[in-house]
Design a binder for these strands. Structure first.
Lengths: 233, 233
DNA sequence: GAAAATAATATGTAGCTACATAATAAAGTC
DNA sequence: GACTTTATTATGTAGCTACATATTATTTTC
């Protein structure tokens, strides 16, 4: 067993994080310059730089040119979550996926939808409501608006067979996404679709995607009772 | 106005993303080798590498040694959110922050809490319930368990003045965090604290932090009606 | 012809240099 | 003394080289 030949940037990150955790560098403190840390630890400045980038990303330190690196005094909890295609999400949990189209129609966007999409004026869009099932039980209902300027091909898709969710994710990569969570009491429609009672608390995931400045779609997905969304650092 | 002297990794990322968006590289396709792309675009392989790392992080492509880079066929929506100290969150929204300690006691961890913390057997921990206010109106109630092995100094803190949330975030940096969201119907306690009716749908944010393998704290924060959590890509 | 050993290959990473950039500090100007 | 200009400095980034590593492809061996 020999000493490790080289320090990787991950090693440096772990070392610096350890020092922050054991208060060698306390919140608000200024860290040594990358160059000095590199000299001390016996690696190149680029390696320290790479490590610092990672710590910046996870919200532990703040860096400024000339100003140096500081341990954040007001750390934020920063976490990342993933929302896969709903079919895959169900299958990953070991369930059998089912899909049911509820409705499909051209409609004029009401104000809240315009706000979500950032539209200055109303537009006619394709509105699709659908139900996702896991083992024949309701899993999630979605109420979606699709901009036909960005995704005209959706008209050729048989939405009674294939979900707009899957088609869009597969065929319309976006450059920007906005995700919001909140809770609602089930009203009669969603209660019926999700086979629960009116008033039941439900998690709502609102997702809007753009390609450049052009909106593609916005969905309000309401999950069945018990649904939990997980994020990790 | 001259041509830009050099391509930055962000330029390369944008170019590759544009090609994915306009289906020059379609989902599932294999991208050129970093080296070839570098030659084509007129930059170094390291620059392409950096760009590809970013695209990998955002879930657009997948890379494997020797296997090359592929456009993901099943893209995931990957987004990051931040949870600041509650006081700062209120102040950032332009509100006046208030805090009220509800209760503080040593208790033995019940099963659900043990599960959250990953404890094999029950332990006595400090349980703190508190209310955060914005402009004198309820903003969030938290029900927190604190491991005194990891954070014994919390006993010296006057929790009727200072929130455990703020003290912990400032003094106990963690190395791992787990965040979960779900919706609940308000029961009598939370309804009373949040000044709403029993049954009202509320967003629950459950957060657990560890330092190495040792748990620090786990909180169940229930937000007042109307609360919305935002994430971005 | 199947299994094992070997070669080939694309990405991953570390080190170096050089220069860009932003923020601050110092010096100079009226 | 307040304002402007000029240095200084720490991080940010690009290019290069060299080598590590994980797969896949090929060849060898029995």
């Amino acid at each position: 067993m020999t000493v490790q030949a080289r320090l990787s940037w991950a090693d440096v990150r772990d070392e610096v994080r350890a020092r922050i955790l054991n208060r060698t560098y306390a919140p608000g403190d200024k860290l040594p310059r990358d160059e000095d840390l590199a000299a001390e630890l016996g690696c190149a400045r680029t390696t320290v730089h790479r490590a610092m980038q990672d710590l910046t990303l996870s919200g532990l330190v703040e860096r400024k040119r000339k100003g140096g690196t500081h341990v954040r005094a007001d750390p934020v909890t920063r976490a990342t979550f993933e929302i896969p295609i709903t079919r895959l999400e169900v299958e990953q949990r070991g369930g059998r996926y089912g899909y049911h189209l509820i409705s499909r129609a051209m409609e004029v966007t009401p104000l809240p939808i315009m706000a979500r999409l950032g539209l200055p004026e109303p537009a006619r869009m394709l509105r699709v409501k659908a139900l996702h099932l896991a083992d024949s039980r309701p899993y999630m209902v979605e109420d979606r608006w699709i901009d036909l300027t960005s995704a005209p091909e959706i008209l050729n898709v048989d939405l009674s067979r294939d979900s707009a969710n899957e088609w869009l994710v597969r065929h319309k990569p976006y450059s920007r996404v906005d995700v919001r969570f909140h809770a609602v009491n089930a009203e009669s429609d969603s209660a019926r679709h999700l086979a629960t009672e009116v008033g039941q608390a439900l998690l709502v995931i609102e997702r809007t995607t753009w390609i450049g400045r052009d909106p593609i779609t916005t969905v309000q997905a309401i999950a069945a009772p018990g649904y939990q969304l997980t994020a990790k650092s």
